[in-house]
Design a protein around this nucleic acid. Structure first.
Length: 271
DNA sequence: CACGGATCCTGATGGC
DNA sequence: TGCCATCAGGATCCGT
C-alpha cells in the first residue's frame, strides 16, 4: 500500500506529537514480518527523540537504539491519546507518555524491528542495500545515468527494486514513466541520457506532488490522524487500464511485470 | 552476479 | 447465497 509519499505523509502526521515521549509499554498482536528484533522490554523506558524516513521505512530514533517500522502492503499507523481497544488487525501498539502509536496491518507484510543502532546487523540487513533518496540532493543525475547503464532489466522493475533509487512503488513507477514518456518494458541500460534525466525529474515531481496531496488512498490508507490522501484521483495511468489517456485519448494498456500490474499509454510512451 | 518467479497474508471483487 | 479465481500500494528468498 504505502510508497514513499504515504510513508512521508504518515511521518509528518505524528512526528512532532510523539517526539520527547517516553515509551511505557508495547503490545503485540499477531506476528508481523521479521519478528526477530522486537523484544518489547528493550523499548520500555526509552525516549523517542526523532522520527525519520528511509525509503519506505520509518525510523524512530530512541534514546538507546532505533525502532524500524514498515507498512508493507496494507499497513497504516494511527497516533492518538485515547485509542480504542485493539482490533483484529492491530498488531503493534507503542504506548507512550504522549499517546499510543498503533500499527494496523491486515496482511501483516509490515514490520516492527528494534536495532541498537544503524550499524547494527539487523538495521544493515534491512537498510543496507537501499538506493538513494529521490527527493534529496543525493539523487545525483550523473550517478543515476551510470547506475541505469548497469541494469539489463525493464526500467519499471529497476525502479521497484529500490536498489538504485528508493520509495518508488507500483503506483508512482507507472506514473513517473508516463510523465517521462518512457515505456515501462524498456531495458534500463538502453535509455538515452536525456531520457534518464527526464525520468529523474519525473520521479521527483510525482513523489513531491503526491506528498503535497497527502498521498494515495486506494483502499483505506490514512495518515496517523485517520485522514485520506487525494493523489489517486489524478493518476494519469495507474489503475486506468482500458480508459482513455488524459493526454492523447489512446486507451491505457495493462500488462504484468514481475507479478505486478503496469499501466502505460502506448502512444505517449513509445519506447 | 543478475534475473525471474514463488512466497508470505488477509480481504475485496467479480463470475458462475 | 456460496464457491472459486484473481488481484491488491512490498520485499525477500531461492533456483538458474
Amino acid at each position: 500500500m504505502p510508497e514513499l509519499p504515504e510513508v512521508e505523509v504518515t511521518r509528518l502526521s505524528f512526528a512532532d506529537a510523539i517526539c520527547g515521549a517516553r515509551i511505557i509499554a508495547v503490545r503485540l498482536g499477531q506476528p508481523l514480518r521479521w519478528p526477530l528484533g522486537v523484544v518489547p522490554q528493550v523499548l520500555v523506558g526509552q525516549q523517542v527523540l526523532a522520527v525519520r524516513r528511509r525509503g519506505k521505512y520509518l525510523l524512530l530514533d530512541l534514546s538507546a537504539g532505533l525502532l524500524l517500522l514498515h507498512l508493507g502492503m496494507s499497513g497504516s499507523l494511527a497516533f492518538s491519546a485515547a485509542p480504542r481497544a485493539p482490533g483484529k488487525h492491530d498488531h503493534f501498539d507503542l504506548l507512550t507518555s504522549h499517546g499510543v502509536l498503533r500499527l494496523h496491518d491486515p496482511r501483516r507484510f509490515g514490520a516492527a524491528v528494534f536495532a541498537s543502532s544503524e550499524a547494527d546487523p539487523v538495521a544493515l540487513k534491512l537498510l543496507g542495500r537501499l538506493g538513494v533518496e529521490p527527493l534529496g540532493d543525493a539523487f545525483d543525475a550523473e550517478a543515476f545515468v551510470q547506475a541505469l547503464k548497469r541494469r539489463g532489466t525493464a526500467i519499471k522493475s529497476v525502479l521497484l527494486a529500490g536498489e538504485v533509487v528508493v520509495g518508488v512503488g507500483n503506483i508512482y513507477a507507472s506514473e513517473a514513466l508516463f510523465l517521462a514518456g518512457i515505456r515501462p518494458t524498456c531495458r534500463a541500460s538502453k535509455l538515452s541520457r536525456p531520457r534518464v534525466l527526464r525520468l529523474r525529474q519525473a520521479i521527483r515531481d510525482v513523489l513531491a506532488r503526491a506528498v503535497a496531496l497527502g498521498g494515495s488512498t486506494l483502499r483505506n490508507f490514512s495518515n496517523a490522524h485517520g485522514e485520506s490522501g487525494h493523489f489517486q484521483q489524478q493518476t494519469m495511468v495507474y489503475g486506468r487500464g482500458g480508459e482513455p489517456c488524459r493526454h492523447c485519448g489512446s486507451l491505457i494498456k495493462t500488462i504484468r511485470q514481475g507479478q505486478r500490474s503496469t499501466f502505460f499509454c502506448p502512444a505517449c510512451q513509445k519506447l
